[in-house]
C-alpha cells in the first residue's frame, strides 16, 4: 500500500510538473497580452510530432533541442499574422480565434501524421527502471523532473535577470508606462508569445516520451493547465507553478483511492480554492 501511494505520489508530481510547464507558458501570454491561448495544446502536439519526425535524423537529444524551437517559430508566425490584431480588443475575440486555431492544429497533426497512436522512443538507458523495488523510478521520469526543474529555473532566471525578462515583468504590471518609456511593446509581446510557445513545445517532447503520440494529446492536457492557473492565482507565475504541482499530486493520490474521480477531483479543488480565496493561492488582490 505504501508503495502504491508512493508510486502515485511520484506519478502525480511528474504529471504536475508537466501541467506546470504548460501552464507557465499560458500564464506568460495571459499576463502580458490578456490572451487565453486555447491553441496552446495544439502547439504542444506540434512540438511532440516534430520531435518524432526529427528523431531518426538527429536523435532524441537533437530533437529535444530543435523541436521546441521550431514550435516557437510557428508560434511567432501565428502571433504576427493573427493574434496581434486582437490585442486590446474584447478577450472574447482572442478566445474564439485561438479556439479555432486549436481545431486547425489538432486536425492538421491528424492529417499529416495520421490518427493512430505512434510510439516515441527514448534512449534505452533512460527507459529502464533504476531499482527493482521501486519499479516506477525509470530514468526517463527522473530525467523529466530534472528537465522541468531546469526549464523552470531558466525561465525565472530570464525573467528576473535579463533585460527582456525585466520588460516582460514590467509590461505585465503596466504596459502603457513601459511603452511610454520607449520599449517596443509589439516586439515585446511577440517575443513573450514565442517564449510561451517554446515551453509548450518542450512539454510536448516530454509528453511524447511518456504518453505516446496522439493528435488529441494537447486537448487532453490543456484543461488541467487552466485549473493550475486558477488554483495558483491569475497573474502570478510562482502561483501557476505551485498550482500545477498541487493538482498533479492531488490527482495522483486520488487515483489510489477512487480511480474514476482522478480527473474530476482537480475541479473540486478549484471550486474550494475559489470559495475560500477567489484570487487563487498566490494571486494578487484586485488584479483580475
Amino acid at each position: 500500500m505504501t508503495q502504491l501511494i508512493l508510486f502515485n505520489l511520484f506519478n502525480g508530481l511528474i504529471i504536475g510538473a508537466f501541467y506546470a510547464l504548460m501552464a507557465l507558458g499560458l500564464s506568460l501570454i495571459l499576463n502580458l497580452s490578456g490572451v487565453i491561448n486555447f491553441a496552446h495544446g495544439g502547439f504542444l502536439a506540434i512540438g511532440a510530432y516534430l520531435a518524432y519526425t526529427l528523431t531518426p535524423y538527429v536523435g532524441f537529444w537533437g530533437a529535444l533541442a530543435i523541436a521546441p524551437f521550431l514550435t516557437a517559430v510557428l508560434g511567432l508566425i501565428v502571433e504576427r499574422v493573427l493574434i496581434r490584431r486582437l490585442y486590446g480588443r474584447d478577450p472574447l475575440y482572442s478566445l474564439l480565434l485561438t479556439f479555432g486555431l486549436a481545431f486547425i492544429l489538432e486536425d492538421g497533426t491528424r492529417y499529416i501524421w495520421g490518427p493512430q497512436t505512434l510510439p516515441f522512443s527514448v534512449p534505452d538507458w533512460l527507459s529502464s527502471p533504476l531499482s527493482s523495488q521501486f519499479f516506477f523510478l525509470t530514468g526517463y521520469r527522473l530525467f523529466m523532473v530534472g528537465l522541468v526543474v531546469a526549464a523552470v529555473a531558466a525561465l525565472f532566471l530570464i525573467l528576473s535577470r535579463t533585460r527582456l525578462g525585466m520588460r516582460i515583468r514590467a509590461g505585465t504590471l503596466d504596459l502603457e508606462t513601459v511603452s511610454t518609456l520607449g520599449v517596443n511593446v509589439r516586439v515585446l509581446r511577440t517575443l513573450n508569445f514565442g517564449l510561451g510557445i517554446y515551453l509548450a513545445g518542450l512539454a510536448g517532447v516530454l509528453a511524447a516520451g511518456m504518453l505516446g503520440l496522439q493528435p488529441t494529446i494537447g486537448s487532453a492536457l490543456i484543461m488541467p493547465s487552466f485549473v493550475a492557473i486558477i488554483v495558483g492565482g491569475l497573474g502570478s507565475l510562482p502561483g501557476t507553478l505551485l498550482g500545477g504541482l498541487l493538482i498533479g499530486v492531488t490527482a495522483g493520490v486520488t487515483t489510489v483511492f477512487v480511480p474514476s474521480a482522478s480527473e474530476a477531483v482537480i475541479y473540486v479543488m478549484m471550486g474550494l480554492v475559489l470559495l475560500v480565496r477567489p484570487r487563487g493561492l498566490l494571486g494578487e488582490e484586485g488584479r483580475f
Binding site: 480565434l97 479556439f99 479555432g100 486555431l101 486547425i104 486536425d107 492529417y111
Partner: peptide, 8 residues
Amino acid sequence: SFIGLFFV
C-alpha cells in the same frame, strides 16, 4: 479544420 478556419 474548416470549422476552425471559419472561427478565425
